[in-house]
């Protein structure tokens, strides 16, 4: 029972990170049908920017909490600029190209960004400065830390903010209209280019928040860290139904839970033959199963567009 509850907690924490990253994939896909495979790298850049900025500020004597906040803001701004630039430079010229072209470009951008990060931050693992005090809690035999609590709360608040933006503001309505019928949205006066850029910028800001959380959680970062994280978040988005916001959130949390429970029990289930380091298997088994049996994902059903 202890291990069950423990893994639920771990899964929730990991899952809320996946959910934030998955939203970046799903927003861009929902509006322009593109899978932005460079999104994982945007997250990575967010983590590394925070290391540099927060590390520097701590070194010059700024209080840790303040330095952390400054690092987070710097990461968000850098990632927003990066998302905007990616769309402008890499994807906009390919707006009317066959679908495979921007997809391959996305993979190319992912490689470019990884190498750029390697040049800037080096190829070694970097330590993420501890931004939050170490505090442990216990609940019904399971342990969790302050960092874990903060991750879940921040990600819930961020997602709440996104839902407000999409469902309660004019920009959000324009984004939803554009994703449903871009030609008619432009007849209504919506500048499609701006809406697409907004999707990239907002998705990248969420990615930056996720990046800072990943760094805080694992206390370590690396120029290749975005690759696996990106793939898993993409899996989460597909699981929930790519293009659907609620789907990305639920898919992320579910994937985190599946991974954590899988890793917790795989040793027992295989008599010790496979250990918890096989946890990455679960995400991709989920991806394959979803693609085989319900490629539209949990929430990906089309509602009646009849007549």
């Amino acid at each position: 029972m202890d291990i069950f509850l423990q893994q639920i907690i771990n899964g929730l924490v990991q899952g809320s990170i996946y959910a934030l990253v998955a939203l970046g994939y799903t927003m861009v896909y929902g509006i322009m049908g593109l899978i932005n495979f460079a999104h994982g790298e945007v997250v990575m850049i967010g983590t590394l920017v925070t290391i540099t900025v927060a590390g520097l500020l701590i070194k010059v004597g700024m209080p840790v909490a303040l330095a952390g906040l400054a690092g987070l803001i710097a990461a968000i701004l850098c990632c927003m600029a990066l998302g905007w630039g990616l769309e402008r430079i890499a994807y906009r010229p390919l707006r009317n190209a066959p679908r495979l072209t921007p997809l391959i470009t996305a993979i190319g951008m992912s490689i470019v960004l990884q190498n750029l990060a390697m040049i800037i931050w080096g190829r070694n693992y970097l330590t993420f400065p501890p931004l939050l005090p170490k505090m442990d809690f216990e609940f019904a035999g399971a342990n969790f830390t302050l960092v874990q609590v903060v991750i879940v709360l921040v990600s819930a608040a961020t997602m709440g903010g996104l839902l407000f933006l999409v469902y309660r503001t004019k920009l959000g309505m324009a984004m939803r209209a554009t994703s449903q019928n871009p030609a008619v949205a432009s007849l209504m006066g919506v500048n499609i280019n701006r809406v697409i850029a907004a999707a990239f910028v907002i998705g990248s800001a969420l990615g930056a928040v996720a990046g800072v959380m990943v760094g805080t959680y694992y206390e370590i970062a690396h120029y290749q860290m975005g690759f696996m994280l990106g793939l898993k978040a993409f899996t989460a988005a597909v699981l929930g139904g790519i293009g659907n916001l609620a789907g990305a959130m639920l898919g992320g949390v579910l994937l985190g839970l599946i991974e954590a429970l899988g890793a917790g029990y795989i040793g027992d289930l295989t008599g010790g033959f496979l250990g918890s380091h096989y946890q990455d298997i679960f995400a991709f088994v989920v991806l394959i199963v979803v693609l085989m049996f319900k490629p539209s994902g949990l929430f990906g059903e089309k509602t009646g567009d009849r007549a």
């Binding site: 309505m173 324009a174 949205a185 007849l187 209504m188 006066g189 009646g304 567009d305 007549a307």
Partner: peptide
């Protein structure tokens, strides 16, 4: 203002939201 052929309503917006989109400008 153009009412396009085939109507082009936004299928997953409500009726009220569709009207509000018409007043986007």
């Amino acid at each position: 203002a153009l009412v396009p052929e085939g109507r082009g309503v936004f299928p997953r917006l409500t009726v009220a939201e569709n009207l509000a989109m018409g007043a986007f400008v």
